[in-house]
Design a binder for these strands. Structure first.
Lengths: 230, 230
DNA sequence: TATATTTGTGTTAATACTACACAAAATAAA
DNA sequence: TTTATTTTGTGTAGTATTAACACAAATATA
């Protein structure tokens, strides 16, 4: 066959941020080079020759924003011939969910600036990154309904309302507090502690904790969390 | 940045075959060139410079097996540095489901031979194609439970048992005929005709047909088919 | 004519989901 | 110090869905 092929391979990361009482946000960089210089974009870049895709996306993320993240899930591969005006670049996209205040954002040479943006108030994005973002948000919401992925984002011990708020924020809609609580508790991997939150106003809340061991055991058994009703 | 990168981009197709009373099968080619010469592999190959990923996978499939298919869904992108012994190749994999007897299988120069194999009796596969296959099978089963993807595989008018059999075959387990029928009929896109099957033994069956219009309308409304119980 | 095969059909019990409101415990304000 | 505000914690009843289950009818085949 002996076919000449010159296609570049890139990775892009859609990193969502959530923190208590906060909004859902996404991490963007302002591009420091052409094309799309000074336009906001998803962090990402070309894969090195001997580097796995996962390693590449984590490296780029680290370089461009200072954020290190250990779980990113592959989202989709975008490969339209003209998605990059320079030459053919296919992009394997990943997404993840973190607590923004765990990181000190820090841009490097390729990226002038890195910043969290509320998902409800995004700037114009470079390339087809809006499409990638939309795909990621849709997937994040869908995933939340059958896997309680949000627990990493809470404190080790948290009031139940934090979890409610997380779901409501990501899904972008209110949930029935009683039904939600019943459902989550039925899974049996959230446990009540005997501690009480140091609180602001209102009745003080019991603190709960996530039993990762039980959760992982269930996952391994192929258990399927059905939070669809929310 | 000016980074030299020489990574090849390939696509691979996991094409499942099902036909009435048949097994679930998958389309493989016997490689005619090194590496893995004479080993069975998924059809696929390098993407051309100005060709979309979807176009590439359809083209390769056509070239290597003679099968044309209009709906392939992106599955996953495999990119471990050493997955191809020659040089770095990442593969974007796709999967689809067809009726084998709709096609005359025909190999070309790159592939000595193309053949359907029962998924329960696969030969050793080249590269990481076994992993790709496993991923595809898992996804196919999962998908079947929330989208009735199998209707394309049936005759335009089919006895209900054909549909039952399709589900049982793909899922690899028996289903409750009554409950399954009730569930499917509740979706309201399968309609009874007044025709009767020309049959073999047993009580003759009414023929049903799939109302694609209704189905598409539901899909567009974001409807979610829940066949999870099967 | 008897046997085997396949289709067609309904009910009941158990489970899961939805919708909904108010008292209790604390802080903040008057 | 009293009152208002905020937030937590909790139960039930009606509805819908699921799961489990068996036998008669219609035909082909032996």
């Amino acid at each position: 066959m002996a076919l000449q092929q010159d296609i570049k391979v890139a990775v892009d990361a859609v990193v969502f941020g959530y923190e208590s009482k906060g909004n859902l946000s996404v991490l963007l960089i302002k591009r420091g080079v052409e094309p799309f210089k000074n336009t906001w974009a998803l962090p990402g870049g070309l894969v090195l020759e001997d580097e796995s895709l996962e390693a590449a996306v984590k490296r780029e993320l680290k370089e461009e924003t200072g954020v290190t993240i250990d779980y990113l899930e592959q989202l989709y591969t975008f490969g339209k011939p003209k998605r990059d005006p320079r030459n053919r670049v296919i992009s394997i996209s990943y997404f993840g969910l973190v607590r923004p205040n765990h990181f000190k954002i820090k841009a490097d040479t390729d990226a002038d600036e890195a910043k969290w943006f509320s998902v409800n108030d995004l700037p114009k994005l470079a390339f087809d990154h809006k499409t990638i973002f939309n795909t990621a948000l849709k997937r994040l919401k869908a995933k939340l309904l059958y896997q309680p992925i949000g627990f990493d984002l809470l404190s080790a011990e948290f009031p139940f309302s934090d979890l409610e708020h997380l779901y409501a924020t990501i899904l972008g809609e209110d949930i029935d507090r009683r039904n939600f609580r019943k459902k989550i508790m039925s899974f049996d991997f959230v446990e009540e502690t005997n501690k009480i939150a140091q609180q602001g106003s209102g009745r003080p809340a019991k603190l709960f904790k996530f039993n990762k061991k039980k959760y992982d055991a269930l996952l391994n058994d192929g258990f399927y969390f059905d939070i669809k009703f929310v």
